[in-house]
Design a protein around this nucleic acid. Structure first.
Length: 493
RNA sequence: GGCGGCGUACCCAAGUGGCUAAGGGAGAGGUCUGCAAAACCUCGAUGCAGCGGUUCAAAUCCGCUCGCCGCCUCCA
């Protein structure tokens, strides 16, 4: 497997620190508001990465944290007249609900910063002892800062020179810090803010230190993969590296993996620009699987331009898949057991191309995913298989050999579906769920009974009546498909 | 200003040195069908922002130009 490592700027062979095991940490969210589609992307990407490692037989331990104490949470609490920890609790629950709906597996450990205050204090104390950090008195309490110039490798991840950072006017000038690039490990408590007791009096942790403490506690001092959105490269991950490696003297993470942004009108989606869509806003109009397919149709490091049109395209693709799965299921349950000579063309020759695609499918899929998790290419392969399956079924095959072939294709879809957490509903469920996301107020049985009425009309060759029923359903967003022996329905996408 | 990325058909998007440039969506024509729908077939970039260069061979490497974006501040 090859993975692009932000640290080296290259794709590298993946060799885990411990054979057969993957220790992986992804920075989660600060819980002060609903998540937007950009957060969803990051979560989907790392979900798929961890799933694929498991598919590949690795023993994966995946940790994704919650930042549940921070300025924004405190501000939000004040705005809403809530306690800060009630805000955190609320949005952790909402995050979980969004992730569940998106089909994102819970991480093996989902630690919260405030559950690791002691661990953070231990690391900070050690950093002071080792001379990497210094205390600054603020009233009766003290803050602690990391002294960046004590860590010469600072900037190695983001490729920044300390000098450049110093000359840049954008860093906060703060009289308390010895250098503008130094960052807070511990913040002295201000009036009305939450606080914890510490060797420096009342205070709360800085942002970056939580990840160091939680990584070390749950995964160890050196881990295989550390990831997050590309906007975390600097300063967050750079600071994590500095404080962690200063503390342990060991490399913090072997591979640094960062996902690209979601953009709107070519601009990064962000809270501050106000150009964001929350996950739940999108889930109100589109099925969760559509969002997953939309995200996974591009490589994880590329920017993705968000638009309704893109979502609609993804929805159409998915519908194509499920239409094919319906044909597969129909074939497996209704096709004659014994081979009947197909009229004219086809025959045994028909399965050759499908057989060839099936033969190389697993390799193609793994080759794509092994190449820095190229989900876009992998999904392309899946649709090649879809086409071959349809082509084969168009030949109206029959007999055990044909069924075995189609069964093989179905098995492949299911295996792949598990690795990507895509394509794993029944076609019927897909359409029932579409009724919901398209807000079509019809039940399955209502549709079925109209189909039954139409069937009688068709038997009587009352085409006007049959067409009227079909038109009526079509206007409500339901498409009917007449098969040889029955009629199926689907939601228009 | 420093660092990094991107520009592939009408839209989205793989491909980053070598067989006909994946796949999806949209479009046109056809097959099937009572008519449809779905599916399939055919058509659709002699060309990968532009210009130059390296090479037997480049979308793919190098240089320049144009356009767009990100990070350098909280940010997935």
């Amino acid at each position: 497997m090859k993975i692009f490592n932000t640290m080296t700027g290259k794709k590298e062979d993946f060799n885990p620190i411990a054979k057969g095991k993957v220790a992986m940490y992804a920075c989660g969210v600060t819980v002060y508001d609903y998540c937007h589609i950009g957060h969803a992307r990051s979560a989907v990407v790392f979900d798929v990465i961890s799933r694929y490692f498991k598919y590949r037989g690795f023993d994966v331990k995946y940790v994704r944290n919650f930042t549940d104490i921070d300025d924004k949470i405190i501000r939000r609490a004040n705005e809403e007249g809530m306690a800060w920890d009630a805000v955190a609790k609320k949005y952790i629950a909402e995050y979980g609900a969004d992730m569940d709906r998106l089909g994102i597996a819970r991480a093996d450990v989902e630690p919260k910063a405030t559950d690791h205050i002691k661990e953070m204090i231990d690391v900070i104390s050690a950093l002071i002892e080792k001379g990497y950090a210094y205390e600054v008195a603020e009233g009766e309490n003290k803050s602690v800062y990391f002294s960046v110039d004590k860590f010469p490798e600072y900037g190695k991840l983001s490729k920044k020179e300390q000098k450049e950072l110093l000359s840049g006017a954008r860093v906060d000038v703060d009289e308390r810090k010895k250098s503008p690039v130094d960052f807070a490990l511990w913040k002295a408590s201000k009036e009305g803010e939450p606080w914890w007791d510490s060797p420096w009096g009342k205070g709360r942790p800085g942002w970056h230190i939580e990840c160091t403490a939680m990584v070390i506690k749950h995964l160890g001092e050196s881990i295989d993969i550390h990831g997050g959105g590309a906007d975390l490269i600097f300063p967050h991950h750079e600071n994590e590296i500095a404080q962690s490696e200063a503390y342990t003297g060991k490399p913090f993470a072997k591979y640094w993996v960062h996902n690209g942004f979601i953009t709107i009108d070519k601009e990064k989606m962000s809270k501050s620009l106000g150009n964001f869509f929350t996950i739940r806003e999108i889930l109100d109009k589109y099925d969760a699987e559509v969002i997953r397919l939309f995200i996974l149709s591009s490589h994880y490091r590329s920017p993705i331009e968000f638009s309704q049109e893109q979502l609609h395209d993804a929805e159409s693709s998915l519908d194509r898949y499920y239409s094919t799965m319906l044909r597969i299921n129909d074939f497996l349950s209704h096709a004659p057991e014994t081979a009947i000579p197909p009229p004219g063309k086809g025959g045994s020759k028909g399965g050759v191309e499908l057989e060839a695609v099936l033969e190389r499918f697993k390799d193609s899929f793994e080759e794509a995913m092994d190449d820095d998790f190229n989900t876009a290419l992998a999904i392309g392969h899946i649709f090649e298989l879809v086409r071959e399956v349809n082509k084969f079924l168009d030949l109206k095959p029959s007999g055990e050999a044909a069924k075995a072939l189609i069964k093989r294709a179905k098995d492949i879809f299911e295996t792949i579906g598990e690795a990507l957490n895509l394509f794993n509903r029944t076609p019927a469920q897909w359409n029932i769920d579409l009724l919901k996301s398209k807000k079509i107020h019809l039940t399955e049985s209502e549709i079925e009974s109209r189909i039954e009425e139409r069937k009688i009309a068709r038997q009587n060759k009352d085409w006007a009546m049959a067409d009227a029923i079909r038109k009526e359903l079509d206007e409500k967003g339901i498409i009917l498909e007449d098969k040889r022996d029955r009629t199926s329905w689907k939601v228009k996408v």
